[in-house]
Amino acid sequence: MAESFFSPCPRGLETVLADELRALGARAADVVPGGVSWQGDWAACYRANLESRIATRVMWRIAGGRYRSEEDIYRIAYAPTWAKWFTPEDTIRIYVTARRSPLKSLEFITLRVKDAVCDHFRTVAGRRPSVDTANPAIRIHAFLSADTVTLYLDTSGEPLYKRGFKPQAVEAPLKENLAAGILRLTGWQPGETLVDPMCGSGTFLIEAAQIALDIAPGLGRRFGFEQFRHFEHASWAAVKRAAEGRRQPPRPLPIHGSDIVGEWLRRARLNLESAGLARCVTLERADLLEREPPAAEGVMVANPPYGVRLGEEEELAAFYPRLGDALKRRWGGWRCYFFSGDPALPKLIGLKASRRTPLFNGALECRLLEYRMVAGSNRPRREAQDGGAPPAA
């Protein structure tokens, strides 16, 4: 029997996610702003949680209706048979998001949804679940449009970009699912040389290595659906067994990372070790402006720093023209991609982007800029036989 699901993702990656979900068995995948609605059985739900590299969550649609007031939302939230899916012993948390809703207080709506769920359990079981905002067993999402509310049970638990292995508790510049989506947009394929010359904590490197070895991103973690009373253990075991059977053992890959900051390189190395991928990636401390490419052609992908402190904007304004010069001088034959929220980068780099893809890093509007460096076209020509100097590049 087909169930209805919704998978949010970083904005700008909706079409890429739809293609990925279809490949994982989703049916009727429909792109909407911020994600993809789709249908499938529970095996497809389990597979999407385990193998999607781009989805943030997989949410199961359980109810919905039209509303005019908070009391309408209470009535809609009271109606589902919550006790079929979890017990009063399971802790809960309610999440509410809204777009163009006339209701003013999301906090009050959250309270009314919580009251409805708890009142339902008091009626059918004589006791109610407790709220746990830190580590709930069950996550319930309510989405409000201008006049409708839709309720979902979260089948993922922790967001899917939490792959379950990074030990370095630092706020990464971009989430793992955004990095995976950017890799997809570059057209990089396993076996093709990949370089991240500003690798930071190694997010692009880890995602690329997992793709190259066909390692499902969720193999190291647990999921919210494992808490459901109707959890299909045998179906989940089969999905997980199939993914584990495709997983390739670690081996050296043509994936390279570098950074000018030694501390970030140390973090990248620790994160690769935690993921069991240390031998797959070559790391070195290097300045992008000076380093040489590891192959005649390939894909470069980087998330350059974005100036937020006093003085950084001036430093970056001086850096971008030098970056463009380094690409012309050394990286002929490469497809180079820069993900940035800094509008100064495309203006100052001195190169014409062949493609600009709008993406969002959280609430920050960014661009993925593609520069195709034609081999030989920007290299100084040999001096003429009369001894004259070559023309400037």
Rank of each mutant, 00 (worst) to 15 (best):
P190Q: 04
L160M: 08
D196A: 09
A169G: 11
P159W: 04
L213R: 02
L151G: 02
T148W: 11
V170A: 15
K166T: 10
G164F: 12
G224K: 01
T193Y: 10
R222Q: 12
R229W: 05
C199F: 07
A142W: 10
P217Y: 00
F231N: 01
L178Y: 06
A237R: 13
L219V: 04
T203W: 02
F228S: 07
R222L: 08
E192K: 13
I211E: 07
F143N: 11
D147M: 12
G157T: 12
G157Y: 07
F228M: 08
F231G: 05
L219E: 12
R229D: 07
L174H: 01
E176M: 06
L174K: 07
I140N: 02
A212P: 12
R184Q: 11
L178N: 05
A209P: 07
T155E: 12
I140A: 08
L153V: 03
H233S: 13
A237M: 10
A208D: 05
R139N: 15
P159H: 06
F223C: 00
P197W: 01
H141G: 13
G164M: 09
W236E: 00
E192F: 02
G224W: 00
A209K: 01
R184W: 09
Y161G: 06
L183C: 04
S156P: 12
W188F: 01
A237W: 08
G157A: 06
G218K: 00
E207A: 02
S145W: 05
G202H: 04
Q168M: 14
T155V: 11
A212V: 05
A216C: 06
T186R: 04
E226P: 01
G218Q: 00
T193L: 02
W236S: 00
A216E: 00
S145K: 04
Y161T: 08
A208S: 06
L144D: 10
R222N: 12
W236H: 04
K166D: 06
A180T: 09
Q210A: 03
L219C: 01
A242V: 03
A212R: 02
F143C: 09
G245H: 14
G164K: 12
A237L: 13
R247C: 11
R221P: 10
L160Q: 09
P167T: 13
F165K: 07
A169T: 14
P167Q: 11
R222W: 01
L183K: 02
Y152F: 15
L185Y: 00
L144S: 07
I211P: 03
L213V: 03
I211D: 04
L194T: 05
P173A: 15
L144Q: 08
K166N: 11
E158Y: 01
G181T: 00
G164Y: 12
H230M: 05
L194P: 02
D214H: 13
P167I: 10
F143T: 12
P190L: 00
T193D: 10
W188P: 03
A142C: 13
C199T: 09
W236I: 02
V170N: 11
R246A: 04
L194A: 09
E226Q: 14
A146T: 14
D196G: 03
T155D: 11
A142S: 02
R184A: 15
D154H: 07
P167E: 05
I206E: 01
E158R: 06
A169K: 13
G224S: 09
Q227E: 14
H230N: 14
E171A: 14
F225H: 05
G220A: 15
E192I: 05
V170C: 11
Y161A: 13
D154M: 00
T150I: 06
G218C: 00
A169I: 10
